[in-house]
Deep mutational scan, measured.
Amino acid sequence: MSIQHFRVALIPFFAAFCLPVFAHPETLVKVKDAEDQLGARVGYIELDLNSGKILESFRPEERFPMMSTFKVLLCGAVLSRVDAGQEQLGRRIHYSQNDLVEYSPVTEKHLTDGMTVRELCSAAITMSDNTAANLLLTTIGGPKELTAFLHNMGDHVTRLDRWEPELNEAIPNDERDTTMPAAMATTLRKLLTGELLTLASRQQLIDWMEADKVAGPLLRSALPAGWFIADKSGAGERGSRGIIAALGPDGKPSRIVVIYTTGSQATMDERNRQIAEIGASLIKHW
Results as ranks from 00 to 15, higher is better:
L160G: 09
V257A: 00
I206Q: 09
L205E: 08
A222Q: 02
V214Q: 03
L188P: 04
M268L: 12
E270H: 15
Q86P: 08
A280H: 02
Q274F: 01
L197D: 05
A170N: 05
M209N: 14
D155I: 06
A132I: 05
T138N: 13
L73C: 09
S128R: 03
V31H: 00
L197Y: 09
T116L: 12
A276I: 07
H285S: 06
L38F: 08
V101P: 04
S254Y: 02
R91S: 03
W163D: 12
M67I: 08
V214H: 03
G76F: 02
D177C: 03
R238P: 08
H24M: 12
D155T: 14
S240L: 08
I125W: 14
D269E: 15
R241G: 09
D83A: 00
L73A: 08
L247Y: 08
F58P: 13
A148Q: 04
R63G: 04
K232D: 15
I93G: 12
L197V: 08
T116Y: 05
P217W: 09
D161V: 00
L146I: 05
L219M: 01
I243T: 10
V29K: 11
K252R: 01
N173W: 12
T131F: 10
L49T: 15
L74W: 06
D212A: 14
L223G: 04
V31K: 02
S221G: 08
P25L: 08
L196Y: 05
P217A: 06
G142F: 02
L74C: 07
N173I: 13
H94S: 15
V117H: 02
H24T: 11
V106T: 06
R220K: 07
N152T: 10
L38I: 11
T138E: 11
S240I: 12
A170D: 00
N173M: 06
S57K: 13
H285P: 03
S240Y: 14
T147P: 11
P181I: 09
E108K: 00
M67H: 10
D207I: 05
L197Q: 02
P253V: 11
H285M: 01
E164W: 14
I256R: 14
D212L: 13
H94L: 13
P105D: 07
I54Q: 02
L219N: 05
G234K: 03
S51E: 03
R59Y: 14
L137N: 08
I206W: 14
L247H: 01
K32Y: 07
L188T: 13
Q204H: 06
L55Q: 08
S57W: 02
L111T: 07
G85E: 02
T116G: 10
M209C: 14
L197M: 00
I243K: 03
E195P: 10
T198G: 09
M209K: 04
D174L: 05
W208Y: 03
V72K: 00
C121Y: 15
R273A: 10
L188E: 05
R59G: 01
Q265V: 08
V106F: 11
L38W: 10
A40G: 05
V72F: 13
P181E: 11
A133P: 03
E145H: 00
G216P: 08
V101C: 09
L223V: 05
A84M: 12
E108F: 01
G39E: 08
I229Q: 04
R59P: 07
A230M: 11
E164P: 10
E102Q: 07
G263P: 07
E108I: 13
K252C: 02
I256Y: 14
F64D: 11
L38Q: 03
R91W: 06
I243E: 06
G226P: 06
T267C: 13
Y95P: 02
A133T: 01
A245R: 08
A200D: 00
D207F: 08
R273S: 13
N98K: 12
I244C: 11
T27F: 03
I244E: 10
E145D: 05
R91V: 10
C75I: 15
Q204T: 09
P143H: 06
V42D: 00
A123P: 00
G236C: 11
L55F: 12
A235Y: 10
P143R: 07
S128D: 06
S240N: 00
G154P: 05
N168G: 06
A280Q: 07
Y44R: 12
A200C: 02
S254W: 08
P25C: 06
R41A: 12
L120R: 07
S122K: 15
E56W: 12
G85S: 03
A280P: 02
L79S: 06
T112A: 11
A200M: 05
G248V: 03
E237G: 13
R202W: 08
T186C: 13
F70A: 06
I45V: 06
A230T: 03
L89K: 01
G226C: 14
N152K: 11
G279L: 07
R91I: 02
F228W: 12
E166D: 12
A84Y: 09
G248H: 04
A246E: 13
I243N: 08
G279W: 12
M153S: 12
S254T: 06
G142I: 00
F149H: 13
A235K: 06
K252L: 01
A266T: 15
I244H: 11
N130R: 02
G248E: 09
N173P: 07
N134W: 06
Y95T: 01
G90M: 02
I259Y: 14
K232F: 15
P249T: 07
R255S: 06
S57H: 12
H285L: 03
R162P: 11
E87S: 14
G43W: 06
G194M: 08
G242W: 08
P181D: 15
S104N: 00
R241Q: 14
T126E: 01
T138A: 11
Y95D: 03
L191Q: 03
I256K: 14
G251T: 06
H94R: 13
S264M: 12
R162M: 13
L196A: 07
R81G: 01
H285Q: 06
F58T: 11
P105N: 02
V72S: 04
L160W: 10
T116S: 10
M209Y: 00
G239K: 12
E102N: 01
Y95F: 05
D113E: 15
L150W: 03
T112N: 09
A200S: 09
F58W: 15
D36G: 02
L47Q: 01
A170L: 08
D177M: 06
D83R: 01
I140D: 14
G141V: 13
E277D: 15
M115F: 00
E169Y: 07
R59V: 04
M67N: 09
M67L: 08
T179W: 00
L191T: 13
A40V: 06
A40I: 00
T126W: 03
P181V: 12
L73F: 03
N134Y: 06
D207N: 12
Q204I: 15
L79F: 10
T69N: 06
S281V: 14
F64G: 12
Y95A: 01
T178M: 00
D83V: 04
T178F: 14
D231W: 09
A133S: 03
M153R: 10
L196H: 13
L247I: 13
N134M: 06
G39D: 06
H151E: 05
H94Q: 12
L100M: 15
P249C: 06
Q37H: 07
V117Y: 00
T131W: 13
R271K: 00
L47G: 01
P249R: 08
W227P: 02
M268A: 13
R189N: 12
P249F: 00
R271Q: 02
L100I: 06
V101I: 06
P253M: 13
E145V: 06
R238L: 13
L150V: 01
L282W: 04
I278R: 15
A225Y: 00
L47R: 02
L28M: 04
